[in-house]
C-alpha cells in the first residue's frame, strides 16, 4: 500500500507492506541514521520523532504513520551538531550507535520539559540504552546543553 509521510519536512510517498515497520521503511529509503538494536522495543536506538514525540520506529507500523510527520536526526542538523559538541566535550560519545536516538530524544525533552531535574532527565531518557558510556558523560553533556541552550 502507499503511505504519505512528511519526513524531515519533505513530503514523501512510500510503498509499504501491511506488516512493515517504520524502521525498515526508513532504512530502505536511505534514512540510515535510524538503526536497529533489538527485537522487541527495549533499546531505543531506533527512536524517531512522530509528530514531535519520540517513538520506537521498530514497533511502529508504517501504515499507522500515514499522514504523520517524521523527524530523523537528519532533520535536526543544527540541534544535532550542538548536542554533538557537548557530547564531544564530555567524551560522551563512544561507538555512536545510540547517538542519533539520543540527539532526537534530548531535543524532544528540551521542548517538553522546563528546567528538568537530574531525575527528570534520567526518567525521560530511560528507554535510550547505551552500553558504552556508562551514562555519566551523557548526563553531564545533556545538562550542559540544557543550561546553555
Amino acid at each position: 500500500m502507499k503511505i504519505k509521510l512528511k519526513v524531515n519536512g519533505e513530503n514523501k510517498v512510500f510503498d509499504v507492506k501491511a506488516d512493515e515497520y517504520l524502521l525498515d521503511t526508513l532504512r530502505k529509503n536511505n534514512y540510515v541514521s535510524v538503526r536497529r538494536g533489538c527485537d522487541n522495543t527495549s533499546c531505543g536506538v531506533c527512536t524517531v520523532l512522530i509528530n514531535g514525540n519520540p517513538a520506537a520506529s521498530c514497533s511502529y507500523l508504517s501504515c499507522k504513520a500515514d499522514g504523520k510527520e517524521i523527524t530523523t536526526v537528519e532533520g535536526i542538523p543544527e540541534e544535532a551538531a550542538k548536542i554533538a559538541g557537548f557530547f564531544g566535550r564530555e567524551g560522551a560519545d563512544q561507538c555512536g550507535f545510540c547517538n542519533p536516538s539520543m540527539a532526537l530524544t534530548v531535543y524532544a525533552m528540551k521542548k517538553e520539559l522546563v528546567n528538568p531535574t537530574d531525575d527528570d532527565i534520567r526518567s525521560y531518557l530511560v528507554g535510550n540504552l547505551c552500553r558504552c558510556s556508562g551514562y555519566q558523560g551523557q548526563h553531564r553533556a545533556i545538562k550542559a546543553y540544557l543550561e546553555v541552550e
Binding site: T72, P77, A80, I83, A84, F87, D93, G96, N99, P100
Partner: peptide, 22 residues
C-alpha cells in the same frame, strides 16, 4: 589534551558509517 572524538559529530548527525549502512 581535550579533543572531541573525530567521528562523534558525524555519527550524531546520522552520517552512514556502520556496516549495514554500507
Amino acid at each position: 589534551y581535550e579533543r572531541p572524538s573525530i567521528d562523534g559529530k558525524g555519527l550524531m548527525m546520522g552520517k552512514p558509517g556502520y556496516t549495514d549502512d554500507l
